[in-house]
Simulated assay, not measured.
Amino acid sequence: MRMKRKHITGLLATALMVGGLLAGCSGKEEAAPASGDSKPKKAEFTFRLADNHPVDYPTVIGDKKFAELVNERTDGRIKIEVFPSGQLGDEKSVLEQVQLGAIEFTRINASPLAEFNDDISVLGLPYVFDSDEHLWNFLESEKGTELLDGLEASKMKGLAYYSSGSRSFYSTKPVKSLADLKGQKLRVQQSKVNIDLVSALGASATPMPYGEVFSGLQTGIIDGAENNLPSFDSSNHYQEAKNIILDHHQRTPEVLLISQTAWNKLSEEDQKIVKQAALDSVTTQKEEWAKWEQNSEKKLKDAGVTFTEVEDLTPWKEAVKPAIAQYHDKYKDLLDAIEAVK
Rank of each mutant, 00 (worst) to 15 (best):
P33R: 05
K6E: 14
S85H: 12
K39M: 13
E68Q: 14
E309Q: 10
D233W: 08
I258V: 13
G224Y: 03
D119G: 01
K299G: 03
A13H: 04
G19W: 10
A153G: 04
I78N: 09
K39C: 02
Q184W: 03
I108D: 05
A114W: 14
L100I: 10
K64M: 03
A114Q: 15
M156Q: 11
K65M: 07
F66A: 10
L21W: 13
G19I: 06
E30G: 03
V198H: 00
G101L: 00
H248T: 13
T219P: 02
A50H: 15
L11P: 08
P54I: 14
H53N: 14
P207L: 06
V188E: 00
S267F: 13
E152T: 13
A23M: 09
G124H: 05
N52K: 00
V255C: 13
R48E: 05
P54W: 09
G20N: 09
K42L: 03
N137F: 00
G183Y: 10
I78R: 14
I273K: 11
L334Y: 14
L12E: 01
T206L: 01
L159N: 11
Y170I: 03
L147W: 04
E311H: 13
Q190C: 04
N117C: 03
K64F: 00
Q190F: 15
H249N: 09
A290W: 04
K185D: 12
P40N: 02
N236F: 13
N228H: 11
L88I: 14
N295Q: 02
A15L: 14
T172R: 09
K272A: 10
T261G: 01
G183S: 12
W136S: 12
Q218V: 11
G220S: 04
L335H: 08
V274G: 00
N194I: 02
Y57N: 15
V188K: 00
Y170E: 07
S154W: 07
L335W: 05
E133A: 05
G89N: 11
R167V: 01
E140N: 10
K64H: 12
L12D: 00
F232R: 12
V341E: 12
D333C: 03
S131G: 07
S199M: 13
W136G: 11
G158N: 01
I273H: 06
P58A: 09
D312L: 02
T284Y: 13
A337W: 05
S38M: 15
P84C: 08
I103K: 02
P230I: 12
K182G: 11
E212T: 11
K291A: 04
I80V: 13
V98Q: 09
E288D: 15
R73L: 07
A67D: 05
N228G: 01
